[in-house]
Design a protein around this nucleic acid. Structure first.
Lengths: 334, 334
DNA sequence: GGCATCTTCTGCAACGATGTATCGCAGGAA
DNA sequence: TTCCTGCGATACATCGTTGCAGAAGATGCC
């Protein structure tokens, strides 16, 4: 079997507890003793049993990350960064894909998944604030990139509305007047889609351009959704000189459909997205988009969650962090 | 604190072990007793403590997945599928990003990460077969999609060589004679890159086209690597009428560079990739590529690993699975 | 010298589950 | 009646670690 603390203790001629103390950096240990224990550890190749430690301490040093689908480029990159940030503070990340299914979200919040983790990074797609609050246990939870702005929860997000307004203003400055929005309902106002749509409307208003609900095309937030939405607009005879995909996948799907149908991008229709995934830079034409400061989102949310776990952050109300953003002007909408 | 088995036992008026027996589907329990225990569990909202169970049983019901970088589209999609497949058999997947750093790979193999998991899905990028064999513990390990074809290891991969040959033959059939390869060294023969290069060479040979090392452009397997490799070829004055990116990211980067420089794709230069990531379908022009049967790879590798863990697969030698593939002909290389 | 305090180390219990051994009680065979 | 077998349930030890309480010796202070 594996080497245990008992074996180390025997080899070093000290008690079990002394070995434990050495491992946990207990203050009062004679240097000579400490050395003897460390030598024994090295010689036997001892490694602490994390399961036993977890059982005893009640901590797993794992963070849960709940998102809809890891294969979406934005989430893949975010997960990758979160893992790296967590690892720097000695934590691991366990991912749960909800597929936007309510049951899975609920289970992540209070089921076995919760048990395995010391805290949660949560991207709720189905559950509402009250429901979450009701099922929220004692372990810390940080909301990620989503719309639920509620004093009960910590939240790390970006300036969705402001960024969408900036992007829209950029399109308007280029002379675009009929800007289609891909991925929202005309009446939407909550959620990521709603916030970005609000920014769009605010920018139009400021420019004195009337809002036309016919330009708003709802669809699934995937490449094929974006393509289908544009197809729908064109088939309905809706005219537009720009398309604003509420994320890059939507924009790229939309652009693809436009190019297939023989439209010139950006000459006839400008296309812009949101998220600045790696792919946006390498699309043809390259995609104008908003870079959401993902590094900042990842670092801040990990820091906040771990500070909550370790009791270094004690604010009664939810802490709200808004990461900055940057407009990335590229070929698709100069 | 949380409800324990002891609380349930007391509530149901039975012993601790009887509760355990009910939970583990022990055969000889009177239906009435079983019912009483189940009622108590439901009433108290008892949930088994996974950590305690792990400590006692030595199993965590977690699988480790070691790959270079989760933000690479291929790996993101693979990870997503692996998680879903694992979850169907009651396992979770814990991801470790190696960034192709040797230390991280070694640690994943024998460090704390190994301890947390019952088995490993391993994509070695740095370590060699002998090194892996030397550090391999007792827990099952399945190699994933990589080149190490060794009787000591289980391996799930795809027909890399055959697929690359098929793709090359397709390009040749379209009249291409000078096909650049993006992402390999001319002398390479092992590893994913080597296998695909072998397929390329075999197809050329069969068509009676001489192999020209000048057409082989090594680079990092990322979009920007592909772009840089093509830039290098063009700047060196190497002429070619097709570019075969050894994965889709490379091909898309290459295509981007070609389009920027005013080349017509596919009229002047055809472009083809490998992996059929979602993005390939929505690129402009859409990318001809090889679809590696990822669903099959994910399902088979999870099945194999779990069968090893649970003792249902007992072959002494490594089991080798080769998933099928499909040529996806699209606009970039008709 | 006597007492309090600090340093260094130890032993025991506990975290919450499962494995092993065992026990009482039926019912059937001898 | 006695012995045996199988069912249904139990008690106790155990997995490897950490928290708590305390012991023994060294040191400081009056």
């Amino acid at each position: 079997m594996a080497v245990t603390m008992n074996d180390v203790a025997r080899a070093a001629g000290v008690s079990l507890k002394t070995v434990s103390n050495v491992l946990n950096d207990y203050e009062f240990i004679r240097p000579a003793t400490k050395q003897r224990v460390q030598d024994a550890i090295a010689e036997l190749g001892y490694e602490a049993n994390l399961t036993a430690r977890s059982l005893r301490s009640g901590k797993t040093r794992m963070l849960g990350l709940v998102l809809s689908d890891l294969s979406a480029p934005y989430y893949a990159e975010l997960a990758s960064r979160l893992m790296k940030a967590a690892s720097q503070r000695g934590y691991r990340v366990l991912v749960e894909q909800s597929d936007a299914v309510a049951d899975v979200e609920v289970n992540a919040l209070q089921g076995p998944f919760r048990q395995l983790t010391d805290g949660l990074l949560f991207t709720p797609l189905v559950m509402e604030a009250d429901e979450i609050a009701a099922r929220l246990g004692k372990k810390p939870l940080v909301m990620l990139g989503e719309h639920i702005l509620d004093p009960r929860f910590d939240l790390v997000t970006m300036k969705n509305e402001e960024a969408a307004a900036t992007l829209t203003t950029h399109l308007v400055a280029d002379g675009r007047r009929r800007i289609a929005v891909i991925g929202a309902h005309p009446e939407e106002s909550g959620g990521t889609a709603g916030l970005r749509l609000n920014g769009y409307r605010r920018a139009l208003e400021k420019a004195g351009i009337p809002f036309d609900p016919a330009l708003i095309a709802p669809c699934e937030w995937r490449r094929d959704g974006g393509a289908a939405a544009v197809a729908g607009l064109l088939d309905r005879g809706v005219e537009f000189d720009a398309a604003f995909g509420l994320n890059d996948a939507l924009a790229l799907g939309a652009m693809h459909e436009l190019l297939i149908r023989g439209f010139k991008v950006p000459e006839q229709v400008a296309v812009a997205g949101f998220d600045d995934i790696d792919e946006a830079r390498f699309a043809s034409p390259s995609l104008t988009t908003v870079s959401p400061g993902m590094a900042e989102i990842a670092d801040r949310s990990i820091a906040l969650l771990i500070d909550r776990i370790e009791g270094q952050e004690t604010a009664d109300q939810g802490v709200h962090v808004e990461a900055g953003f940057q407009l990335q002007v590229r070929e698709s909408a100069p």
